[in-house]
Amino acid sequence: MKCDMCGNNQASVHLTEVINDKVTKLHLCEECAKIKSEEMQSHFGLTDLLAGLMDLGPAMSEDGVDPSVTVQCPVCLMTYYDFQKNGKLGCGKCYDIFQRNLSELLRKIHGADRHVGKMPFAGKKIVEEQKDMQKIRSELNELIKKEEFEKAAILRDRIKDLEKEMENEAGAE
């Protein structure tokens, strides 16, 4: 079979195109197929573009297999591979589970992988608590260095309480 585009070379690529609900079959040689595929790339949707970015994404492990694409989110049961296919995450937990791959993807989309800007009311509280926690921890370290163990014990209990509080709040997530 000759190529439908140039009419010279032997066709080796067979393509089905749907334009305005009409199905067209094209038989192309390799060279014309290349030209056609460049043309088609301009019609790709967002999902394809995301998939394109993701192909470059996850790093391979030592044995050459990428383990991250088969990791499954325990909440919505989505794998990174599923996400690569449809471009949408399944739940908030996915962001934890796929964090490493997502960071890379987000950097490609937005040029950054960290949020700055508005946070919800509950978010503000958590950040403040974390700041408190850091402060208390460094005080605790100071006290231990100075061997003031009684005072340190009080702070240690305070940290435990705070941790419990934060866990309870996070449990609501």
């Binding site: 967002l46 995301l50 471009g87 949408k88 995450l89 399944g90 908030g92 962001y95 964090q99 997502l102 993807l105 987000l106 989309i109 937005h110 950054a112 992988d113 960290r114 949020h115 700055v116 800007g117 508005k118 946070m119 919800p120 009311f121 509950a122 978010g123 958590i126 950040v127 974390q130 609501a172 997530e173």
Partner: peptide
Amino acid sequence: DTEVGQYLPFDYSNIFGYLTSCPTNTGT
């Protein structure tokens, strides 16, 4: 958004910000 956020618990991460189904919207 601020007012309704008091009635509904919006999903938010300290790293990624507001979490959305499509990563093109993540953050703000």
